[in-house]
Structures are given as structure tokens and as C-alpha cells.
Design a protein around this nucleic acid. Structure first.
Lengths: 232, 232
DNA sequence: ACTTTTTCCTGCTTAATCGCAGGTTTTTTT
DNA sequence: AAAAAAACCTGCGATTAAGCAGGAAAAAGT
């Protein structure tokens, strides 16, 4: 599968691959198949350029004290993983793990460097991507400082629901309570307690580890004071 | 004062202003004098392009629940304020307030758009800036989720000390305890209590509202488990 | 279908943080 | 220099969140 046949319309490479100046670089793309659970970016290791998800789901995290991990982002088809590193040549402080079998596209650091210096519209797109992510991340800092545990869990559920979608209310991804807590910024027990509470309030259902959101609007309403404008 | 005489070596504009392609744009720069306390970027208002600090100090914040503000960054000479907005034309969700009398350079959204599409090295520099800030912000998310109040306050003090420097240990900026707490992600009282504790431990001195760091290394050591590699 | 393993759940205890209230010091204004 | 305002400090009770432990349920493996 090459970029021209790919239908990830929102992929930064795809959006620019019609350009004459991109042609020599697209040939240098390599493809990687990841099994569920595979840790294809290891924190502290040298950076292998940028990854793009052709098909699949990935969690991006930073490891903290006592190995406790903070998930900073969930990603899916067409999205970018592995900012920084090109240029500064510095070790990159994130890890990335496939949540299910995933096909990745990769451009090496050298190739990325060449692309960014020769394809201005792509550089512009990547700049916009980082600016948006920065905005989202700064909003998350604010939320972590101000939200209660229940609010943080609701916010996390709505984000995951938006990112991965649902079928009949069932969120289209298998996450453990631990993973939800690592994203929401609390503990596994607190996530479990909050889900129990939401279940009693008839806002969700949780058969097994699957989660079904019964009423998105009521959940949104409960955190609306924290989200004046943006979905982040 | 134009860009050629400016000595902010780390300014993104300055770094690129020798280029032929920058000439027509540099003329379009406007300058703005801000009094201490002036709120020159208002949250929710339309974006007026990018600001660069020629000389001064500025806090960048997001307003949350009940008007509680989260300071996301402190900035000084040569640094950029006002990411996002160009392109999407969206309202920009941050506010910026001068901490002292400050001279700002401004390029309008239109001019920035032109620059970014015509000066690839500048676009690349701005991309790198956002990527680094994103990395810092994601690290901050992790810290907020995992640090104790004392650790967060120490981390904040060290950041402010690095950013604004010190003379004989006295940090070169006048911040209230409230502002420190709005940055550290806790309350004014907790900051005061932590500063009292640090004073008793002979790590700092606090004559009036000024703060003098007696022992940077010991402070660093106390949060070292959270900062394996980077100063953020 | 049974066993093993993993994940999920809940009650209880402990610890950390918050928020109020009232007083003191520092800074600013007149 | 005195008065007013702002900022700083501390004790205490209330709230919230975290951590432990043991059991129940679900998922995975044989």
C-alpha cells in the first residue's frame, strides 16, 4: 500500500503527496506491522523519525515515578506519532504501544528532515498539528489542576468516545480501567468507583470491561463548566 | 527599533530576518508598549497574529472554573506568544498579561500567514518551537498527575528561576503567592505553607514577597525522580 | 467444560489537600 | 509619617483522594 491508494484523508503525508516535491520521499516510506501490546517507541531510545498510523489504534505515554505511566494521547488512522527529535537529535521522551494490531508508516529522521526543508506546505501542516496539540495539552493541564476525579473520568470517557467512536453506544476500543486512569490522571480504584457511580446514575452501562455510554449529553453537561469552547 | 538592531538572538523573526524573502514583512511589524498588569491578549477574543517580546516579562494563562486561572507559561525577551489562530481563524483560548512594563512586537494574522507560506525556515523554526512546548506541556501533565504539592511548588520555583534568572539568589521577577499557585497547580495557602516549610529547611529565604533560593541543587534533588532528562 | 489468570469491584483506613477565618506583616497611597 | 490596602501567614476542621486487602466476576488458556 502506497500513499496514493491510502484513504486517510487527514494524514499530513497524504494531504501533500500529490506535490512534485514529495515524490522522491514517498518512495522512502517503510511499513511496520505491530501486534497488539507491542511497544514500538521506547522512552529514552533514539528517535526513528515520524510514524503515521495507516490502520489501528495506539496509546502514547510518558513514564513517571515508580513506573506509573501517564497516557498523553490516543491515536488512530492517519494520525502522527513521534514529535520532536528531528533536528535536535535528542532522545525522545515518550513511548508508544499498539492497543490492537496496527499498521504503521515510518519516515526516518533523515528523510523527515529533508521533507521539512523541501515541502513547505507539509511543514506548515505539521506546525499546525503541533500548535493544536499544544493547545489541547495546555487545556489538559488546566483540567488536571481544577477537575475532581469524577469530572476527569467523565472527560476521559468522552474524549475516548470521540476519538474511537462507538457502535450502539459501546466505545470501539478495549481499554483496562488502569489505562483509563493513566489517561485521566487518577488511580485504577477511583476509575472503578466512578464508573460504578455513573452506572448507578444510569449514565453508562459496563458489561464486562466494555463501556456503553447511555447519555452523552448528560455527561457533557456535568463537565460543561470546564469546556467553554473546545472539545479537547 | 527594527529587527536588525534587535539583540534577541533566540527570536524566531530575528533568526530569519537576514533572508531576502523576509524583507517585505519586517516592515509590517508593529510595536506595542504594555504597562504592568495590562491584559493584551484576552481569552476568547479574535486573534491578532503573533506577539514577540522585545523586552519584558509576560504570563500566559487559561481561565477555568470560577475564574480560577491556570498559568501555562512565563515568557521573556525574544519569546513568542499567541500560537494557533492563523489559518483556522478560530478564537484563541489564552490570555496574556504583562508582569512588568513590556515592549511587544506584533505581526498580524494576515502577515503571519504570508510569512509562513513564503519563509520555510521560519515555519520550520516555529514548528520546532511548538513541538518543544508540546513536549514540555505533556511533561507538565504527567507532573500534575504524580507530584505532591511540595514537589509541584519546588518544580515551579526552579522553572521560574531558570526562566527569569536571579541576582544573588533572588529570583528576578515579582510574583504573588497566588500567581505561583496558579502556575504550580495548587492553592495560594499551599504555596505559602510550602514556602514556610522550605524556609525552615534552610532551602530558601523569603524577605517580603521576594524569594531567594539558597540551594538549587538540594531543591533539584528533591524532585529528581520526576525529571530524568529534561528541564521543563 | 474446567482451570488458571487476569481484571474488576468494594469496604476500610490512612494520608493529603483544600478552604475558611482571623491575625500579622508588608506594601502602597495619601 | 500615618492610614489604607494588599499580600502574606497559620491553625483547624472538612473534604477528597489514595492505598491496601480480600473477594467476585470475567477472560484466557488447556
Amino acid at each position: 500500500m502506497d500513499c496514493f491508494n491510502c484513504n486517510n484523508k487527514n494524514c499530513i503525508i497524504k494531504r501533500n503527496c500529490h506535490l512534485e516535491s514529495m515524490k522522491p520521499f514517498i518512495a522512502k516510506k517503510s511499513t511496520l506491522n505491530c501486534k497488539k501490546g507491542q511497544n514500538f517507541i521506547i522512552e529514552g531510545a533514539p528517535v526513528h523519525g515520524l510514524y503515521f498510523i495507516q490502520e489501528g489504534k495506539v496509546k502514547v505515554a510518558k513514564t513517571g515515578l515508580n513506573g506509573k505511566e501517564q497516557i498523553v494521547r490516543f491515536t488512530t488512522n492517519g494520525e502522527t506519532i513521534g514529535h520532536r527529535g528531528f533536528g535536535a537529535g535528542q532522545a525522545y521522551q515518550i513511548s508508544a504501544v499498539a492497543l490492537q494490531n496496527t499498521v504503521l508508516c515510518n519516515f526516518s529522521t533523515d528523510t523527515m528532515q529533508q521533507i521539512l526543508l523541501n515541502v513547505p506546505t507539509l511543514t506548515y501542516d505539521l506546525m499546525t498539528f503541533y500548535a493544536e496539540e499544544l493547545n489541547r495539552s495546555e487545556t489538559k493541564v488546566k483540567k488536571f489542576a481544577q477537575m475532581t476525579v469524577r469530572e476527569k473520568v467523565i472527560d476521559a470517557l468522552l474524549y475516548i468516545n470521540r476519538k474511537y467512536g462507538n457502535t450502539n453506544g459501546f466505545i470501539n476500543v478495549q481499554l483496562s480501567r488502569k489505562e483509563i486512569s493513566d489517561f485521566a490522571g487518577t488511580t485504577e480504584e477511583q476509575v472503578i468507583r466512578t464508573l460504578s457511580g455513573l452506572r448507578k446514575d444510569k449514565l453508562i452501562e459496563t458489561p464486562g470491561k466494555r463501556i456503553c455510554i447511555k447519555n452523552v449529553d448528560l455527561l457533557r453537561k456535568e463537565i460543561s463548566e470546564h469546556n467553554y469552547f473546545i472539545d479537547s
